[in-house]
């Protein structure tokens, strides 16, 4: 091992070192009993990591807000009925969130609809995993044809309408829809390959 490597393995960690959030037990129990101040303290402290975690899976604000609310409600119901909060409250909230997404997707499956369970499987929560996922998606995007990449950038990353995308790419709206469909088909295959 070179000196540089040795140094890296001992000292260099990513900046995003997570600190365990400490919420006092009495705050949790008072919140479960309906104490407004404690509920607000709990929500202020934990809404954002829970929301971000759920948003990552559903990718829209409407569902993320609803599921975040439901996760807090169910978690407080659990505290109330068991008289004792779990050791890792944030982890518990996220697990409840994943269960709610699963419930709603399971309903879709009961209605005969296909769901992609990979999307809701709990992730190991560390920056490294997030980074790897991001790299996986970015490298799959890089493998697309330039036109396919552009259509996904405009439509999904920049949020342009089909009409705006068509104008910018000098194509008809029907051609944009076809191009984005093919791009996503290919991308889904690339993502699958990497998995």
């Amino acid at each position: 091992m070179t000196f540089d490597n040795a140094y890296s393995s001992v000292f260099i960690k990513p900046i995003g070192i997570k600190k365990v959030k400490v919420i006092r037990t009495n705050i949790l129990l008072k919140a479960a009993q309906g104490d407004a101040y404690s509920i607000e303290e709990l929500c202020l402290a934990l809404w954002e990591p829970v929301y971000r975690f759920i948003y990552h899976r559903v990718q829209n604000r409407e569902e993320a807000e609803d599921i975040t609310q439901e996760s807090f409600a169910r978690t407080l119901a659990y505290f109330r009925n068991h008289g004792e909060p779990p050791h890792n409250v944030l982890g518990y909230l996220k697990t409840v969130g994943v269960n709610i997404i699963r419930d709603s997707w399971r309903k879709r499956q009961l209605q005969g609809k296909v769901v992609n369970w990979e999307d809701v499987k709990p992730l190991v929560e560390d920056n490294q995993t997030e980074l790897v996922q991001r790299l996986r998606i970015e490298s799959a995007l890089e493998r697309l044809k330039p036109e396919q990449k552009t259509v996904l950038q405009l439509r999904i990353l920049m949020g342009c309408s089909v009409a705006d995308t068509a104008r910018q790419m000098g194509k008809s709206e029907a051609a944009v829809r076809t191009c984005q469909y093919r791009a996503l088909q290919t991308l889904a295959r690339y993502l699958d390959d990497v998995d």
Binding site: E48, Y51, R52, Y55, H56, R57, V58, Q59, N60, R61, A64, E65, K113, V114, V115, N116, E118, D119, Q133, R134, I137, E138, L141, L152, I156, L157, Y181, L184, Q185, L187, A188, L191, D192
Partner: peptide, 22 residues
Amino acid sequence: QELEQIFSAVRAVKSLKEPALP
């Protein structure tokens, strides 16, 4: 099945953006 995989790919691409916060 194919559409579900495509939706999943859409979500994957959108996950590169910062989440829309409430």
